[in-house]
Amino acid sequence: MSLLPAHLPPNAGARKYRLRPLALIIAPIVAVAFQVKAPLFTEYLSYLDPPLLVTVYFGLMRREPVSALFIGMGVGLLQDALSQNPLGLFGIVKTLTGYWTASVSLRMDSDNNMVRAIFAFAFYLVHQLLYWTLASSLLGQQFSFEPGEALLFAILNAAVAVPLFQLLDKL
């Protein structure tokens, strides 16, 4: 199923989104910084995953799997570096997320808010599932995966993703 608008040419979804290099560097760092700092202000902000949303955004708009995977890898490693986990866990998850986002976005209208929300919702779930799988299998970490909670947070992140992506569009 293609979510491309009917009036667009068949190759319209394949156009590349031009991103400013500075935004490419600053946005992930700010996202990680926000994830580190924001929960100190309000506990509810800990349910947001801005680094994931930024990864999804760049994958969605960049439409180039290779660059998207590197962006995801960078963001993931940055998260790893600030966590207690060994480097690579978030990196692998975000690498895959970026790659898949860019791959799927080739067939979608990435400017559509609904598409963006669906991407954020779906890839949040994928991200959480992947992280849980890798953490439990590679590092032997034991923590439960609550599907209901994950769904709720996925909706929350999807709701935040729409205005956030519009903000990132301005950069």
């Binding site: 760092i29 990680v32 910084a33 580190v36 890898m73 490693l77 940055l78 570096a81 600030l82 060994p86 480097l87 690579g88 866990l89 990196g91 692998i92 690498t95 590679l138 590092l139």
Partner: peptide, 26 residues
């Protein structure tokens, strides 16, 4: 990244420089 992960788990050493950069940047 798997190799990096495995190296850290196996050797129980961490790549401190990357963490320093990350903390310094973030």
């Amino acid at each position: 990244q798997l190799f990096l992960l495995a190296y850290q788990v196996k050797s129980r050493q961490e790549v401190r420089s990357i963490r320093v950069w990350a903390v310094t940047g973030v």
